[in-house]
Design a binder for these strands. Structure first.
Lengths: 235, 235
DNA sequence: GGAGAAATTAACTCGTTGGATAAATACTGT
DNA sequence: ACAGTATTTATCCAACGAGTTAATTTCTCC
């Protein structure tokens, strides 16, 4: 009892501290941007002294880059877990869209960080050798899926995989990253459950219809006899 | 000669001054974001004394909101100039995509401002009664175009105009606003002339194929006999 | 049980920045 | 030509914020 380490003023935990700092920094940078982020707030949020940031990671810019690299690392690693090889081409594309959509929904900080970095014209990312070597496995996945789809006759068009990747990401990204201003302008909450479900249907329908040349059930509202009146309202 | 207003220390020009301030502020806010923008730099760029900003517009936040409102005002006014009524539905959609694309290309600051405002979760926009009343005429235009297309049999699907509007904007917006990080990751310059042309073709092809159910010439690479080998390379 | 290294805290520095005050200069009507 | 107002300049300042210095506490290994 007498030897017990009671009433220690603080705990030592370099690993945990570094993680807490990076997590706090991610929150701060994603909610306030690079210039708007406050080093003191990061420290406070991490339950640390400000000096710790510089001790464990580096100055504000290095901290920011570390967060950015971590964010890319995370999405790339999840992307690798998704194997589209065994699915038939249309199903693979649907899976791809759903993954992108839900990943963005689950990781809103990632969207904010990308926005921030693009506002800076990728100044920091260009300096990162780490990120440059982390190629998205999606492009190659899409390439083979499209090839298979064309060969099997499922797809009418042989689209450039990079273009398709950017299109899918763009359809998801813009809706979510700009949901705040769009919600104001359209006067409706785009982040409500219903709205999000509707959006996913729309995106899947749009892309699959374009690729297969056949409008899918989800997208094909015009022909459905039952929804005639509903169409008249929404369209 | 003696009465000539020679060697005046400064000119009076309230209108011009206000415009120069707003233009300078637009540049500053779009390149540095809200927090990163410097009031002194805006003054210098406008060729004015810092006090002038507060005299003619207001503090930093009011200045920012004025710039944002001006940006929305500008795009809405240009949108109104585009009448799609006389075009057949597919051509109207193509025109819409081309306008959105070229507007974003001609006004990169608009993209940056939107990014900045969304990073702030539209905090300022919500306070603007002015912007809320500036509805985009596009939604109604699209509504009628889609209806006409469905009636004429040109379109297979009756898509929600808001969804389509967001999709078109998203396809254009994401590519351009994120071109910096995407260029780093893909190791190619997405803002090169060729890349931009290719992108526009892709977007028009994608959307029109989805709506009409027929892959358009631009999009339909797979079937073109001449490009067989080219397809093998790109796909 | 003590010396040296690692981790953490407290307090300080110093340039920057948004905003304010007051004085000077130009314009307008009479 | 003068009074009153509108526009512009020249300074100032208090708060903030990134980064530093130096002291303090904990750990490790002998």
């Amino acid at each position: 009892m007498a030897k017990a380490k009671r009433t220690l003023k603080w705990q030592r935990d370099p690993e945990g501290m570094r993680l807490r700092i990076l997590e706090a920094a991610k929150q701060e940078f994603s909610t306030h941007g690079l210039a708007g982020a406050r080093v003191d707030r990061i420290a406070a949020k991490a339950g640390a002294n400000k000096r710790m940031l510089y001790y464990h990671v580096g100055n504000k810019d290095e901290l920011y880059l570390a967060v950015l690299e971590g964010a890319y690392d995370k999405i790339r690693s999840e992307e690798r877990g998704l194997d589209l090889e065994h699915l038939d081409p249309p199903e693979a594309i649907r899976r791809l869209i759903e993954f992108t959509w839900t990943y963005f929904l689950r990781n809103p900080e990632f969207l904010s960080l990308l926005q921030t970095e693009n506002l800076a014209r990728a100044k920091h990312l260009k300096k990162s050798t780490k990120v440059k070597s982390m190629h998205s496995p999606f492009v190659e996945m899409i390439r083979t899926v499209v090839r298979r789809g064309v060969d099997s006759g499922d797809f009418q068009v042989a689209v450039d995989p990079v273009q398709l990747y950017i299109s899918i990401a763009g359809l998801c990204f813009f809706y979510l990253s700009n949901s705040a201003t769009l919600s104001v302008i359209f006067g409706r909450d785009l982040l409500a459950k219903d709205a999000k479900d509707e959006r996913l249907s729309h995106m899947v329908g749009l892309v699959l219809a374009a690729l297969t040349g056949r409008s899918t059930a989800l997208f094909e509202i015009a022909k459905a006899p039952k929804s005639r009146s509903a169409v008249a309202q929404t369209v």
